[in-house]
Design a protein around this nucleic acid. Structure first.
Length: 569
RNA sequence: CGGGGUGUAGCGCAGCCAGGUUAGCGCGCGUGCUUUGGGAGCACGAGGUCGGCGGUUCGAAUCCGCCCACCCCGACCA
């Protein structure tokens, strides 16, 4: 592959639209181009890199006994109506209709299609399990596409679906997929953490996400430093601390706290820490007002609250809604004597004494409040977000909090789709039962971006060998000189003979341009054919990852390159 | 959807507030000469619906209105 003949439009300057490294570098290295918000064209080198990632995925899936299929991107509406997700998915789904007015969508995922296919085979327990997967372009009309390939509206994903005759069999495949996903991440040189996750629109009871820890990650995850526990912060459960509350007091007393609303203001006015102040956040749902109480040093977790309330249709009370709910005293709401409002307490409040909270009267707080005496926190829930220093529910170890990029997500679906779509099998006992399903997604274009995010420096990308678009870039300093051109040709042939394809920079530009572009594009190994060829018959060999560079005799170059590639990350 | 920002040559930007000749700069691109191991120099040159539509004005990149696109924060989502 010759640089001069391949479209690799490298950019010297950072494109204005790029905010994070992977976005910037994929654009600057001439690997992709933006087309519209969240939609990208992959140029030759980007397309190769994406293919490498997908090859890793394909190999691992095949090894695990899954079988590849190719499904359409265009799905008829009726399947989605049958499963109930035509409405559930909402504006996130790209919809369109054909010339007859029949409705379709561009598939955001493929449970409906695949379940329908398997259902039509009317299998018996003898035919199960099956595990089918595809690597396809998916469409989700994200409310806010961003970060280049990390959150696009059109993106590449491998999705697999397994069908079982009993739970135990699903469990086995699920475990297998869990291992496969970790191994895919390793194969792409990504450190991944497996965390418990919420199932969202896909449904099911149990799910795990595969997270790459990164500051630019859009998720927050929690994991234990001492045991295997890990969870998305939306689901996380920390051990309740015993740090909330203070000493016993004779009785609660009112304190004048003019204009003091925030926990910090009230705490410092009272001369106490936030561990004594009970925070109250007012939410409004379609039916009611909910006062949520958490310790002053915590935030309400809206994801947890959604599970307590059984709906995610709520929002913090807005200024303009205050008039409708006179019982709520903005900034001074407390649980003592509060009427006409649903109260939700965090479990850390149970048994707490000596608390400071709103007095349900403007400009007044109460102090010395005691749960059980002055108000009841029954029933209490886990509705507070984790904070640094919380301990693990499993082993009591210290919890770590980090941001993460979700590269994969696996679900035990159960019978959600097989029931709604009539995907049944005949069991050993002759009875017809719904198949038990699992679904396993991994974002290949997102992995590509994540790899760049994790493997780069100021000069550009540092592709790990396993997913590099090509293994070697051959820089010919003066392609016009016959000796150099011939040596380059010979090296290219020699490497091709051993299965190593080469990007040859044969452009008539100054050496600095080629060196910089080579670092930017970031192929694992650079071979420089230049003046040393004339002077002492050597070429330079540079490992992009380490920056290490050495001269090797040209006749040994092919073996040396092969060896260096085996050693490179 | 709420808030903020930006649209001027392939890319990065200035000009706009205080309207006024052929709309500039850097990079990139073309030609020629010189250069050639870490983004070369000189000379000449090509390249623009100033996001779109409408308005104000003798005159609009510049002022006003509407629309569109892109980016950021949030809400949302997986």
């Amino acid at each position: 592959m010759r640089f001069s003949r391949v479209t690799v439009p490298t950019l010297k300057e950072k494109p204005a639209e790029a905010e994070i490294s992977s976005h910037e570098l994929l654009l600057r290295a001439g690997m992709m181009r933006g087309v519209a918000a969240g939609i990208y064209s992959m140029l030759p080198l980007g397309a190769l890199a994406l293919r490498r990632v997908e090859d890793v995925v394909r190999r691992e899936m095949n090894d695990a006994g899954a079988v590849e299929v190719v499904l359409p991107s265009l799905h008829p509406a009726d399947l989605w109506i049958e499963s109930g997700r035509w409405n559930e998915y909402g504006p996130e789904m790209m919809r369109l209709s054909d010339r007859q007015g029949r409705e379709f969508c561009l598939g955001p995922t493929a449970e409906e299609l695949i379940t329908d296919i398997v259902a039509r085979t009317a299998p018996s327990y003898r035919d199960l399990p099956v595990n089918l997967y595809q690597i396809q372009t998916k469409f989700r009309d994200e409310t806010r596409p961003r970060f280049g390939l990390l959150r696009g509206r059109e993106f590449r994903m491998k999705d697999a679906y397994s069908f079982h005759s009993d739970e135990g069999d699903l469990d086995r495949t699920y475990e297998r997929m869990r291992l496969v996903y970790s191994s895919i991440a390793r194969g792409c040189s990504l450190d991944v953490r497996v965390v418990e996750a919420v199932t969202g629109l896909i449904g099911g009871d149990v799910s795990h996400e595969f997270m790459v820890v990164s500051d630019i990650g859009e998720d927050v995850l929690v994991y234990c430093g001492d045991c295997e526990y890990g969870a998305n912060a939306e689901l996380e459960s920390h051990a309740p601390g015993h740090t909330f509350g203070g000493d016993e007091s004779g009785s609660a007393e009112e304190v004048h706290t003019p204009g003091l609303v925030s926990v910090e203001e009230v705490a410092s006015f009272m001369g106490v820490g936030p561990a004594l102040v009970m925070k109250c956040v007012i939410y409004v749902t379609a039916e009611e007002v909910v006062a949520v109480f958490v310790p002053g040093y915590r935030e309400v977790s809206e994801a947890k609250l959604a599970r307590v309330l059984g709906t995610d249709e709520f929002h913090p009370m807005r200024e303009d809604e205050r008039a409708r709910f006179p019982a709520v005293t903005a900034g001074f709401t407390g649980p003592v004597g509060l009427e006409g409002v649903r109260m939700v307490f965090d479990r850390e409040i149970t048994g707490a004494r000596g608390l400071v909270c709103g007095a349900n009267r403007p400009d007044y707080h109460l102090r010395g409040v005691e749960e059980g005496r002055d108000f009841s926190a029954e029933p209490a829930f886990d509705v507070a977000a984790v904070v640094q220093g919380d301990t693990c529910v499993r082993c009591g170890g210290g919890l770590e909090i980090a941001r993460g990029i979700e590269i994969g997500h696996i679900f035990k679906l159960g019978v959600k789709y097989s029931e709604s779509l009539g995907a049944n099998f005949t069991d050993r006992d002759g009875k017809v039962k719904p198949m038990i399903m699992g679904t396993y997604g991994i974002g290949t274009s997102r992995i590509l971006a994540t790899v760049v995010e994790q493997h780069h420096d100021d000069g550009g990308i540092k592709w790990p060998v396993s997913v590099a678009p090509l293994p070697v870039e051959l820089i010919v300093i003066k392609p016009g000189r016959p000796e150099q051109a011939e040596a380059a040709d010979e090296l290219t042939r020699g490497l091709a003979g051993r299965g190593m394809e080469v990007l040859v920079d044969d452009r008539e530009v100054s050496p600095g341009v080629k060196f910089n572009d080579a670092d930017l594009v970031g192929l694992p190994l650079q071979v420089v054919v230049g003046k040393k060829l004339d002077s002492d018959g050597t070429v330079d060999l540079k490992t992009r990852y380490t920056g290490e560079r050495r001269a090797v005799p040209v006749e040994l170059a092919v073996e040396e390159i092969e060896r260096a590639l085996e050693e490179a990350p």
